[in-house]
Every structure is written in C-alpha cells, then in structure tokens.
Design a protein around this nucleic acid. Structure first.
Lengths: 258, 258
DNA sequence: CCATCGACCTAACAAAGGTGAATTCGAGGC
DNA sequence: GCCTCGAATTCACCTTTGTTAGGTCGATGG
C-alpha cells in the first residue's frame, strides 16, 4: 500500500509543525510505499532482541516503547502518537534493545529504510523535517529523565499530562480543553516510575486541586496554567520553532552536484 | 587545527568498536579540521537556550549534559567520555534544550557540521559508524530512564558503575580491574536522581558487600559479576556487535550514482 | 440474572530515600 | 606544621512512595 489513499496523513501534519511543506513534498510522502500493520491492544510491534524491521510511523491509536526487567518490572520509555516517525536509522543495529507495543488498537505504516532515505535525498526540506522529528524524540526522552530523576509524583504526572496534551494538539487529536488518555493507571505507573496505587493517589490530588477532571478516559484540563506550573512544563524541548534555514542552501549529508 | 597531530585519537578507537576502519578512513578523521576547546572543571561548553554551535567530540577528560530546574534541582542527562561524538545533527535546532559542561579539565574538538557531513558522504563506513554512535547514545539515555524509573539506589549505582567501566574500557581508559571516577558524590546524585547523603550510603553498601573498593577517585572493581548482577547490567544496549553489512552495498541516504 | 474480569479505589503499614545540620577527612597553600 | 576549603561522612528525623490486601464498579458474555 501507500498512504495516498489516506484522507488525513498525521506525518504531514507533524512535520508541518516544523516547516511548511510544498504540495510536491506532501505528494512524495503520500506516494511513499509502505506496509500497513494493525495491532490490537497490548500487542507487540517488535520485541527486544528482534532484528529491526523498518521505519515505523504511527497512523492512529497510541503506542509505546518499553523494556522489561527481571522481577516483572517494566519501564515505559516513550509514548508514540500518530504522526511519530520512529527508528529512522535503527536498521544499523543488529537487534532492538527495547520493545514497541500498542496501548490501544493502533495502525502503523512500515517503510523500508531506503524509502525514507529516498525522500530525504530528493527533498532537502523533508530531510530536515525528519531530522527535526528525530531530535525532538531524543529531547523528549531527556525530559522524561528529568521527570523521573527530579520531580515528585504530582509534578511528574502534571508534566506528562501537559506534554501529551501538547503533542496531541500538534496533530489535531486534542482541543485546548481536553484529550483522551487511553491508558490504565498501571501503564501510567510504568511510564512515571510509580506504583499503580500511587498513581491513583496522584491523580486524585490533581483532581482535588482543581487542575483536571476525568470522565472515563477523557482528561479535562480545568487549569492549564496551574498544571504547567506544578509540572514545571516548558515546551521548549519540543522545539516548536518553525525552521529558519533556507532548505535550498542546505547541502548537509546530501549528495553534492558533481 | 586538525586532529592530525594527535598521537592517539579516541574517536577512531570508539568507532572501531563498531567497525574496523581502513587507513584511508582513519586518515580522513585525522585530517578533519576542528576547533580545539579546553574547559576547566565545572565550566560550561554550551548552555540551555544557546544556539547550537557545532559537532562536539570529547578528546579527554569527562563531560556531561544537564538540565536545571527551579529550586536548584539539576538532572545530569548523560556522561560524555573521550571518543563520544555529540550532537551530530543538533544544528537543525534553534537552541539547545540542555547544557553541556565538564566534570574535570576536558578538551573538545568542535567540528563544523559540514565537516562531519563530508566525512559521511565520502566514507560510507564512517557514516554508518557515526550513526551507530548516535544510536548508542540514544540507547544509553533510554537505559538511564530504566535506571531512574525502576531500580533502587544500590541497583542504580551498580548499573552506572558497570556502564562507565565498560565505556571507558572501549576507549582504552580503564583496565579490567579499576577505573577513575572523577566526580563528586553530589554529581553522582544528580546523575542517579538521589540526594548526596543517599549516594554516600549507597556507595558504602557497595563497599560493605565487597563489590568495589575506593581509593580516592579510583574505583576498584572487586566483584565484577556481582556488580553486574546487582545492577541488572546487560551491555546489549551498548550494541557492541561488529558491523555486519558490507558498506559498499550501503547506499542509504547517500548520493546515488547517476 | 449471574459470573467474570479488568480497572479503579481504599486503607494500614513498611521501606526507601530526603532533609538539615553537624563533624571528619584530605589535599593544597603558606 | 598549620590553615582552609571542598568533599565525604554521620546522625536524627521526617516525607514520600511502595506493598499487601481487600473492596467497588461497570462492561461483557453465558
């Protein structure tokens, strides 16, 4: 398949948060051949020690990277939202050092690394945008390290909610006031390095303070500023800035004429 | 300057852990023009919000990435050892989302991004090796997330010691039995997400269990297996495997003939 | 209607780790 | 040899978070 039939392509939406794309660039993305893979809830896309397969793009749903430890412990390393393009270079490695799975039914487009390479080669602005999305993923991981290392339970939870709300808004999956958080408290705990019981206490505190309300799996943000303040959330690490360079001048890592 | 005068180039040593390099490839690295920067202890190379400058290579000493939080909290995000090539693509971003500083007097070679791009363009095997070192840095950050999220203080410390010992050995800066850990307990705490007092208790426990001994800043590994077991250290995430691909066949992201 | 199952929630208690304030140690400078 | 200073160490106490165990609720299926 290719993505050409998709009325709505979340990758385009995501990359345009960095740099506007021409019709030709968008068409190139839509025309890129990909394999479609549909996962049910809690199903693995790829496991630790498996050889990497391709470049994964989340189309809808919600996925996560994780690592298991002896004793049944699990750390969730990142959340992958629609529009997130994962592992653009991981084919270099012999095997995965972590696994990827879906929280809820999730569709992936799986590209051959050559396909992504070709897009970058033919469209310098796409190459820059893809690198930007790689760099943002790395920055998110670092910020999560800050979260686990320095923040209290309430701060961690508030920070995560701000980040997810922000990321979902970029791809049009959340409004200003609310969003869907399709994960259990146990999964939140494995994300935040907290026990399920303490996640429960922590969410209660956020509700008691009037920062959020929950209706099922819908999170209503009652006090966005307060949530940001508690979590110490500063979106700079998501690098929302529009691209500043003229891509025509950008020959980095690209073939040189002659 | 270039690195040509350096009798010993830690980048070559590091990259050869992935893939053996030809004399021509090594010569290309040595000939790459770079700016030398020498930092004193606790001095910053670059601060959060600064625009990225270039691609940084640690030549000797020991450096770290970190992020500050209100209230004087600090999380150290990674340690940068000699041979670590940092931020090969960060020039894409407008500003740094974290800072880099030195633990001890440290020398850096700072490359123009174009220089690194050129190396990769002309030497496919170098490009692969540099990507590998990027991917390993990302994997280390993920493993640190596991460390902070799931492991107890003693486990965290043991894991960090195993990792650092391993990484220093790769570049010939440690033998099997001991290595230098030139950081204070306060800095260890900001790395491990622990208070200084608790780092002290934790190191005492590792000594009491006969796993390590300390002579000043020298760590003597008395029971390497025990330390690995306690820390749950599995070096797979450092991807020590030699490269398996024939670089001649590797045209990914590279200019295509014709 | 009833049984089942997963998720959410609660409570009592235990353990890990943080805090603030000394005190000791050790290397370098005089 | 003595002083100084940062780092390591110790202590008493406290807070946060984990653990174990149970209970409630709602959706699903027989």
């Amino acid at each position: 398949m290719s993505l050409s039939g998709d009325h709505y392509n979340p990758l385009i939406r995501k990359l345009e948060a960095f740099s506007p794309l021409s019709d030709e660039e968008k068409a190139a993305i839509r025309a890129a051949p990909a394999q479609l893979r549909q996962l049910g809830p809690r199903e693995d896309l790829i496991r630790e020690d498996d050889p990497p397969t391709g470049v994964n793009l989340v189309l809808d749903g919600l996925a996560y990277r994780y690592k298991l430890l002896p004793g049944g412990r699990r750390q969730i390393l990142s959340w992958l939202a629609p529009g997130d393009l994962c592992d653009t270079r991981v084919f270099i490695l012999r095997r995965m050092d972590h696994a990827i799975a879906a929280f809820v039914p999730t569709r992936f487009a799986i590209f051959n690394p050559d396909t992504i390479a070709g897009l970058g080669r033919r469209h310098p602005r796409l190459r820059r945008a893809i690198w930007w999305s790689d760099l943002v993923e790395e920055a998110i991981t670092r910020e999560w390290l800050v979260n686990l290392g320095q923040r209290t339970a309430v701060e961690r939870a508030a920070h995560l909610l701000c980040e997810i709300h922000y990321r979902l808004r970029i791809v049009g999956l959340a409004g200003d006031g609310s969003f869907t958080l399709p994960v259990t408290q146990n999964e939140l705990g494995d994300t935040l390095g907290l026990s399920t019981v303490h996640v429960n206490r922590t969410l209660q505190e956020l509700r008691r303070e009037g920062l959020i309300a929950q209706h099922g799996r819908e999170i209503v943000v009652l006090d966005a500023d307060g949530l940001r303040r508690i979590g110490g959330f500063n979106p700079n690490y998501l690098h929302p800035d529009a691209d500043s360079e003229d891509p025509a001048d950008d020959g980095l890592w690209a073939p040189r004429p002659g």
